[in-house]
Amino acid sequence: MRTLLEKSVPLLAWAGFTVLAGALAAILGYIVMRSWAVLHLSLLFGDVAPIDAIFLRHPVFDGLFPAVAGTFLLVLIAVLLAVPVGMAAGIYLAEYAGYRMKSCLSLLFDILAGLPSVVVGLAGFSLTILLHKVFPGKIGPCLLLSALALCFLILPYLIRTTQTALESVPLSLRQTAPALGATKLQNICKVLLPSKLTDILGGIILAVGRAAEDTAVIMLTGVVASAGIPRSLFEQFEALPFYIYYISSQYTNAEELQTGFGAAMLLLVLCGILFLLAFFTQQTLSRHFRR
């Protein structure tokens, strides 16, 4: 019985790995295969000259440029909003909070981290309705509200990264500056944070990836299928992941579907790069740390 079990374990292990690797290969292979033919500049800009498109001299209708620009703006705003707040909250948890407050708050942040993104989107949408009641006719689903909801979605990652980074600073380093007369704030800003910069940076990059790929949140708070590049925070916008979802369910011809595969490839590469970047940032750090 025992030997049978022991013999079957490697079998299970290799079988499991093969299934997973096979799935990954199928997904990547299929996307690459189907998108290969459309991977050139016209995927982004359609028949408009790239220079004109980028300087907004000519709107792009047959390319992914508005969706890419929309995603870029969205992620930029969300991350700019989330990074200061998330880091501040993380610093508070690691350096200031008492034991009770800390466990209470981290329970809340764990819940926040676990919330399905559609629930966060729903919260953002509720906020839209409330605002709409206060300012009738002025505020509807828009770029700003999507960015706010996304910011909320990535906050827990930033808080947790900052907190664990600060808490892992060795005691010897932690006590040096105060011993020399530095204030607590000086110690945090000049010693503790810089010593863990790569760690925090890795967390931020991961948060960017998370914000870029999320579809459920923006679907509920302001993304539309056709909008062009937003000119203000209160306009609706297009985004890459939503475009992929939209095309998957309602492409009208083979070219549109091809563009959809192109968009999937683009998003895949984008998120892949972000993840690798985060991985290597943290890797260099941990090697540095071990020495």
Binding site: V224, A225, G228
Partner: peptide, 15 residues
């Protein structure tokens, strides 16, 4: 598409 091409100051969003 036609309207926004003729006049880029107009923005039409469709959902």
């Amino acid at each position: 598409k036609l309207i926004m091409t003729a006049n880029p100051d107009i923005r039409i969003t469709i959902a």
